[in-house]
Structure formats: C-alpha cells, structure tokens
Design a protein around this nucleic acid. Structure first.
Lengths: 185, 185
DNA sequence: CTCGAAGACTTTAGCACTAAACTTAGAAGG
DNA sequence: CCTTCTAAGTTTAGTGCTAAAGTCTTCGAG
C-alpha cells in the first residue's frame, strides 16, 4: 500500500485552516468574526471534555456535576425543585426526574415532598453531595488556572470584560427594530 | 397566595451573582479566572440554542448541520468516511452510521462503498446538502455579526487573539513536568 | 361545597447516543 | 494458497434525553 496515487488521508483542520476553508466556500465571511466564534466553539468543546474527565475521576458524571453546581449556587440550605433545576440546566422536567432518582440513589441529594405544598418536591444537597462539589470545584479551578496560565492579569481582565459584553448582548437581547437577537429565550 | 411568609421563588443568578456565590462557598476561587470561564460557558450555551433555532428553520437539526460543516471543511469533492466524521465530531462510529442513514434519506449526503477499498464507505455532500450548508452559513454569519456588534474592530482582534492563545494552550498541551493539561485528547 | 382548571411532577413511547460484540475486506507471513 | 491480523463499519443492548399523556394537589368560581 505504498502507491503514490494513494490518498494521503485527510487531517483535522487547524483553526486557521478552518477559517481559510470557510472563506473559500463563502466569500462574505468576516475572518475576524469567524476567528472569535470558531475559537469560542473549539475552546468550549475541549473544556467540556476536560471537565468530564476530571469529574469522572470523582465517580460522577458531567450531568451530575451540573446539578451539584446549581444547588450550591442556590445557596444554603441548597434546595431547589426538580422543575427549577430542569429550567436552569435547559432540560425537560422529565429528564430531571430520572437524574434526581439516580443522584438520590448515590446519596448526593435527597428528594422529599414539600410539607407546605404537597404538589412540590424539594431536592436538597446532602453533605456527601456538597463534598463532591467541593472536590470537583478544586479540580476545575486548578484546570482553569492552568488554562489561563499564559495570560497576564491585565489580559485576563480584558478577556473577561469582552466576554461579559458579548454575554450581555446575548442575554438581554431586546427587540430592536431589525435585530435578530430578539428570540434567544 | 399573597402570604408574606411565602417563598419569593428562587431566581436564576446573573453572572456576577454566580461568581459571588461561588466565592462564598469556595474561598480559593480567583474571581478573574472564574469570570472568564463562566462567561465562556454561558456564552456557548446561549449560542448553541440560537444556532439550533436558526437551522431548525431550514428543516435540519444542529447535529446535521455539524456534519454538513465538516464535509464542507474537507473541501471539494466534499467526501469523508463515517469514521473520520465521527472522530472530528467527537462521536462514536456507531452514532455516525445512524446519522448518515438519516441524512442520506433526506438527500443531504450520499453513502457509497469505496470501489478501491471495499471496506471503506464514502459519505459525500449532495448539491442539496451544499445548498443547506450555505443557507445555514448565511444565517449563522448574520447572527455572529450581531453578536459582535458592540465590539470595535480592535476589540474583536484582541478578543480573537486571546481566545486563540487559550485554544493553543488546550490543543497543544504538551507533557510539562507538573502540567495538568497533558491528557486532553 | 363541589366542580373545574391550573400547576408540578411523573410516566410512557420513541429517538440518539455509547460501549461492546460482530462482520467483512484487505494486508502480512508462512 | 491459507491462516491470522488489522481496519472500517454495522449491529445490539442499555442509558439518557424529549414530547406528550397522565396523576395528584391546590386554587378559584359558582
């Protein structure tokens, strides 16, 4: 199989190759915009893989870690209903029913009926769940520190500020005349 | 339901509230790092929702759009094997078998055995698939332009450059002595 | 007081994914 | 040749998700 006519085998394009390829196929593309957007996408995919590996070492899935984070964010006493959890994580309530089942079985949370309103259910973080969250948080924060290692303090500040401005644009998209960012939620 | 003892109902924390909450629960957190990382995460989630709605208007799913993009990136004649597609999209080959089935049924791609090596399968973009890609690309690029609207040209450049540096760190993570970024792939 | 309606979950059916076993074509060696 | 090995896809079993229907509590109107 050493023929010279053999295909060399395709290779995964680098970011620069990707932008160049899109420009060949689609003339109207602004390379500066594309660089920002493509880098964001790639970065996030890599980071999610990395987070997944880290929390797997603690015996929990990325999905479970998201629930732990959401409960901690709610603040003491670390309680939320399944519906609220589902809304914040972008899932259907049905999916959350099963996720909470699993996590309750693993002792990460408890699930109880609200005595004041028996239609509601309260999902509450256990001490074990809180400990898992803390361990995951330590690993994540070490990883994130590594990720930003090459950036100076000023650069980190600038990056954070620019990202926050993009986020504001996407989170408070108001109905401007011809705006296309009006229907994100 | 107008009792003053009634819970006001929890609300989704803003980015600043989120960082403040994490700092209360985890003293070692660097707020500058957390701002960058959390903004990245939120931004990407919002963007994926937005992309999903846009391509849905064209009658394709986000998953199918990813395949179209990957084939276009490969360049003319827009061919790749299912295994290669799976690798680039971070899926198992099994998942790609079914995805290609669907897309071939919809006329977006063709699937044929390679005559030179009958173990291989060639997935090739159809004209209809290429047209769908172009329509999706136009919508995406309008959206992305809107997203970056508030940033000046210089700011876009700075942002792109900083993101590329993060990406480099995560993509070419080499085995440094105590580095934790060594096992990403 | 009773009925109807709404809200908050749960259940069911179906789809997309992963992991692992299986199939088949080409490559390598005796 | 004929066997074995490897590579590329497909198939199977099981998991987690969505959409839609179902259940149960609470609220409001007659």
């Amino acid at each position: 199989m050493s023929e010279s006519t053999e295909e060399p085998g395709p290779h995964e394009p680098s970011l620069d190759e990707q932008i160049a390829a899109y420009q060949r196929e689609f003339r109207d593309l602004d390379p500066q915009v594309e660089q920002v957007v493509s880098a964001l996408g790639r970065l996030n995919r890599r980071m999610n893989v990395a987070y997944g590996r880290q929390v797997a070492a603690l015996g929990i899935s990325n999905a479970e870690w998201e629930v732990l984070k959401t409960l901690v964010l709610a603040g003491a006493p670390y309680r939320l209903g399944p519906g609220e959890l589902a809304k914040r994580l972008g899932l259907t309530p049905a999916a959350m029913t099963h996720r909470v089942d699993r996590m309750a079985g693993e002792g990460l949370v408890t699930r109880d009926r609200d005595e004041n309103n028996r239609v509601r259910v309260i999902v509450e973080l256990t001490d074990e769940g809180r400990t898992k969250w803390l361990e995951a948080m330590r690993m994540a924060s070490d990883f994130e520190e590594d990720l930003l290692q090459d950036l100076s303090g000023d650069e980190r500040g600038v990056l954070g500020e620019l990202l926050v401005r993009l986020l504001r644009r996407v989170e408070h998209a108001q109905p401007d005349a011809g705006g296309r960012l009006t229907d994100l939620d």
